[in-house]
Structure formats: structure tokens, C-alpha cells
Write a protein that binds this DNA or RNA. Structure first.
Lengths: 128, 128
DNA sequence: GCATTTTGTTAACTCAGGTTAACTTATTAA
DNA sequence: TTAATAAGTTAACCTGAGTTAACAAAATGC
């Protein structure tokens, strides 16, 4: 599964909206991502084709199991990177999040594993 | 000066070739970047327009002062990030470089400053 | 229950950054 | 010095990811 940065952002956004509202609307996604409704609508069809979201015409949007699994992974990466930047570089949370949001789409599996190990060690030292 | 990731990669590549050979050829850039000669040729015209490279038709390519200044900054970022990843995450040099090569185009000024501070501290501790 | 407003869709378009193919110009080696 | 090869250019094209504008469907509020 090699998804574009753009598709990853859509999935992540849907995930967050769904977490708070059970499902997402085209307009919510458009607002959160600062893109047009048209762009969202078009992308949703594509994601539906790929089995990542459920949606009928004019209906609301939810992630499929497959879509949710992938989204969870991205979100997890996001948090790990963010925490790593806060801890190692003392970035403040919003600066860390901003950078994590870009990095989550490009770093290697090996790097994300290394980040997870780094965080585990920190937690260990902090007495779990 | 807000350059695309693609343009930054071209500049960086020219910088490296120029370092070793005094100037670059379309074919060198194409080979190093794994793109077609046509793509390089087209991009060089654009960079020339923007005052970043010197080049006459069928002539070789060098960076202008402006182009070199920018390239140097990107290359410096690259090395800082690379070293940061090696030190903080114990990535091996090639893995670090691979990730740095993506990150150099996207991280914030604040983050790169934090990385530089991190590295200074390390150097300090190591007795300069 | 219907008019208004909001939301969603579609079509036609843009733009960056690639490609291939056909061609021209330079370089090289016999 | 010229034929063959390598390098560079140009035109026409493709794709992903966005846009605007016109329209259709749904939701809302009297």
C-alpha cells in the first residue's frame, strides 16, 4: 500500500472527524484541509474505488476497516514523531505537530522504528 | 525564496557535481536524479530565468552566486539533519542520509535551528 | 409543506513536473 | 576529417491534485 501524501492527509482527516462525530461530511473535510468541496468529492470517489472509505452519492463518509487500519498507522506515526521532536529538540507541541505532519508521509520504516525505540527508552527511564 | 522540493533537488545535485567537476552537464544531472535529459533541460531553462544557474544553449551548467548561496543552505541542512538522525536515533549513515534528503525540503526554520543547537551541545560535551 | 440555505456533484480548466520521440549539435575515435 | 556515438533540445503528451462555476439534492426554519 503506497499512498500519496495527499491521500494520507485525507485519510487522517477523516479519521479525526470520525472520532468526534462518527462520520465525516465533504464539507468538514474541505474546511479542515483548506481545499474545495469539489476536490474532496472527487477524492472520495477515488478512495471508495480503492476500498478505503464507504460512501454513497450524497451520503456521509466513513472509513472502511482497511481505511481505518491505515489511518491509525499514520496517526500513530504522527504522534510518535511529534513526541520525538518535543523530547529530543525541545520543540513546543504546536511546532512539533506542524513538522510531524509533514514528516509522517516521508520517513522510512527504519526511522519510525528507531523513533519508537527512542520513546520506549525515555518511558523506561521515567519509571514507565 | 520559496522553492519547490523538485527545484531544491536540482540545485543540490548541481552543487555536488560542480564541487567535483567545476560545472555540470545535463546528462550528469539526469543520471544522478534518475530523470530524463528532457526534464533536466527544461528545468535548467526555468532556473536560468530565475537567475539560479548560468547556461547557454548546449553549454554546461554552473550555479550563479544566488544559486550557490541557496544550494549551500540546503546542503548544510542536509548534513545537520543527517547528523542529528545518526546521533539521536542511531541511524546508520546511509539511512540517515536517505531520510535527511526528504526532510531537508519540509522542516521548519525553527526545527532546523533546534537541530543546530542540539548538535552544538553534543560537540561541546565531546570537548569541542 | 415549501422557500431558502447549505451541502454535494460534475465538467471544464490549470499547473507542476514528469515522459517519449524526433530532431540537432557536439564529441570522439579510426 | 568524417562517420558514428553521445549529449542536448523541443514538441506533444500524461498524470495527480488542485481550482471555479453551474447545477442538483438535502436540510432547515417558518
Amino acid at each position: 500500500m503506497n499512498l500519496s501524501e495527499s491521500v494520507e492527509m485525507y485519510l487522517e482527516t477523516i479519521y479525526f472527524i470520525q472520532e468526534n462525530h462518527g462520520h465525516a461530511h465533504v464539507i468538514d473535510i474541505a474546511n479542515m484541509m483548506n481545499v474545495s468541496k469539489a476536490s474532496v468529492s472527487k477524492t472520495m470517489n477515488q478512495l471508495k474505488e480503492e476500498g478505503l472509505v464507504n460512501k454513497e452519492t450524497y451520503g456521509h463518509i466513513t472509513l472502511t476497516d482497511k481505511g481505518e487500519t491505515i489511518s491509525r498507522e499514520i496517526v500513530k506515526k504522527h504522534y510518535s514523531i511529534s513526541r520525538f521532536l518535543e523530547k529530543s529538540l525541545k520543540l513546543n507541541p504546536s511546532e512539533a505537530a506542524k513538522n510531524a505532519c509533514k514528516m509522517e508521509h516521508i520517513i522510512s520504516d527504519e526511522m519510525i522504528k528507531a523513533i519508537e525505540m527512542y520513546l520506549e527508552e525515555i518511558d523506561q527511564l521515567a519509571g514507565k
